[in-house]
């Protein structure tokens, strides 16, 4: 991530100078920073709402019930997390919200899942396999109805906006299955640079911050 961050910024500045777009690049810093805070602030309300609703679902046993139903699948996908973990039920809810295109609900539920996975994570600054799998499923963005896209097509006067649903569904399924298989593949082949060596490093990072 350090290199990506460096590359994004360094490349943009150098390219901006060559292209004579330095002014635009500089104002992009301001706009980007402002936009980030706007997004975060606008999330507070809906985040609070869904975290409240999710807590009711957990206390009533609904989340645990869903977890039990989908256990055969999640056991394979998330073989490292505890079987009774509340994360499993929430993963199912987050996945359903995503599939139905309920982005406003999906993010808060997804963040709740991350908190629960973090509780079972040994190294709090390094992603666990379960997190990587969950995010692989998430970034592949499995969707049954691409509602926003259809809205745009309708807005420009499409007579048959729903014709993209079938192709989109095929594509999203292919991407989704590939993401799961890739995450599984990397889970067994990814080489970390030795946990004991990286531990003091992360300590230093925290000190600097």
């Amino acid at each position: 991530m350090n290199y990506i961050f460096y590359f994004l910024i360094a490349f943009s500045i150098i390219f901006g100078i060559i292209n004579g777009r330095t002014q635009e690049v500089v104002s992009a810093i301001m706009d980007g920073a402002e936009l980030s805070v706007k997004i975060a602030i606008s999330l507070i309300g809906i985040m609070a709402f869904w975290l409240g609703i999710m807590r009711i679902a957990e206390k009533s046993g609904l989340v645990q019930f869903i977890a039990k139903i989908i256990k055969p699948i999640t056991k394979w996908l998330f073989n490292e997390i505890h079987e009774e973990s509340p994360a499993i039920g929430n993963i199912a809810l987050s996945f359903s919200a995503n599939a139905l295109g309920l982005t406003n609900a999906a993010t808060p539920i997804g963040l709740r899942v991350m908190q629960e996975l973090q509780e079972e994570n040994d190294d709090k600054t390094t992603a666990s396999n379960a997190m990587c799998m969950f995010l692989a499923m998430n970034t592949a963005g499995f969707q049954i109805i691409p509602a926003t896209v259809i809205a745009v097509l309708v807005a420009v006067g499409s007579k048959n906006p729903t014709e993209i649903i079938m192709p989109a569904m095929i594509v999203t399924s292919i991407a989704f299955i590939s993401a799961i298989l890739l995450a599984k593949l990397f889970q067994y082949t990814w080489k970390d640079k030795g946990c004991k060596e990286t531990a003091p490093e992360t300590g230093k990072e925290a000190d600097n911050a």
């Binding site: 991530m1 963040l111 992603a127 995010l135 692989a136 993401a179 890739l182 970390d192």
Partner: peptide, 20 residues
Amino acid sequence: YFGSIGIKKFRYALIVGLLA
């Protein structure tokens, strides 16, 4: 998602996401 819980090392999550 990683930011909300303070994860700094993404390991293979980014590669998987981009490949997908």
